[in-house]
Simulated assay, not measured.
Amino acid sequence: MKDDVLKVSTAQRLERSEMEYMIDRMRAIEERSGNPMGIETQYFGEAVAFYSREMPWPQFNTVKGIGSAEESYLSEIISFYRSRNRNPHIEVTPLRAEPTLFRSLARQGFFQSSFHATLYTGCKKKSASPLEKWTNDKENAEIIEINSNQFDDYAMVHCLGTGLPISGKQHIADNNRILHGRKGWKYYVAYYNNEPVGAAAAYIQGSTASLTFATTLPAYRNRGIQTLLIERRMRDAVQEGCNLIVGQAAYLSSSFRNMQRAGMQLGYTRSTWSSLMPLSGLM
């Protein structure tokens, strides 16, 4: 695979990778005893709708894989969420973008609220790329693939690095610990002078690796921690036999630039559509 030429088949793998890790993640959370997060996943044609009763954030209440073929399901998709007092975020990739779909979304009271970038790199096990030269001694940082007893460190960094209240640490730990040992999932914590300062996750499905999450504590940013976390996950993916590595980030964000520094390039930007209707008007 040549990194400078994006084929339709590769773009399809980029989209599929994001759907696959989210499906597996939500399925694992749903399988917790009693389904405490109230997870539901429903298919509408090739589109998949994710919902969580206890986690109102967009990433857990979103529609992926929708295209013009799913226009006939649009009212049903919206009803699925509004019957649960939730407005969904609907994601459309360039592969599925059609004027008729956008008009239908607008008629249903949705507007394009943002873009989000998908980046990728192809890699071969014997290439002379920076992946083979990875080192973990930069600025006294050590990257560890964690075990099930280290999720408190992971959850603490996750909360403080993303601006979530630390009171939610146990929920973050529980919802991610269940993925530990599940096929394809890997979790990492970056320690700086033995203190947890960064966290990241990856999901491997077949020959594709998805960099699903990463963050660094604000006080430790701009020290190369994220670059090390990206490179470590890349190295492990190559060793697992992957030939495609995929990540998502806000366009031109620090995460976007970190992925570029690690050799990833822009695959496409997808659009996110949000509802104009306030939740108070749904019931």
Rank of each mutant, 00 (worst) to 15 (best):
D4R: 14
V5P: 01
L6C: 06
L6R: 05
K7S: 15
V8P: 05
S9M: 03
S9C: 06
S9Q: 09
T10K: 08
A11D: 00
R13P: 03
R13N: 07
L14Q: 07
L14M: 10
L14H: 10
E15T: 04
E15S: 08
E15V: 05
R16Y: 05
R16V: 00
R16F: 05
S17L: 07
S17R: 09
S17C: 08
S17V: 03
S17M: 04
E18Y: 01
E18Q: 15
E18F: 06
M19E: 02
M19G: 02
E20M: 10
E20L: 15
Y21M: 09
Y21N: 00
Y21Q: 07
M22D: 00
M22T: 12
M22F: 06
M22I: 02
I23P: 07
D24Q: 13
D24I: 11
D24S: 13
R25Q: 11
R25L: 06
M26W: 05
M26E: 01
R27F: 10
R27K: 14
R27A: 12
A28N: 13
A28T: 13
I29W: 10
E30I: 01
E30P: 00
E30L: 04
E30R: 15
R32E: 08
S33V: 14
S33D: 14
S33W: 09
G34R: 03
G34F: 08
N35C: 04
N35L: 05
N35F: 08
P36I: 03
P36S: 08
M37K: 12
M37C: 15
G38F: 05
G38R: 09
G38D: 04
G38L: 02
G38T: 06
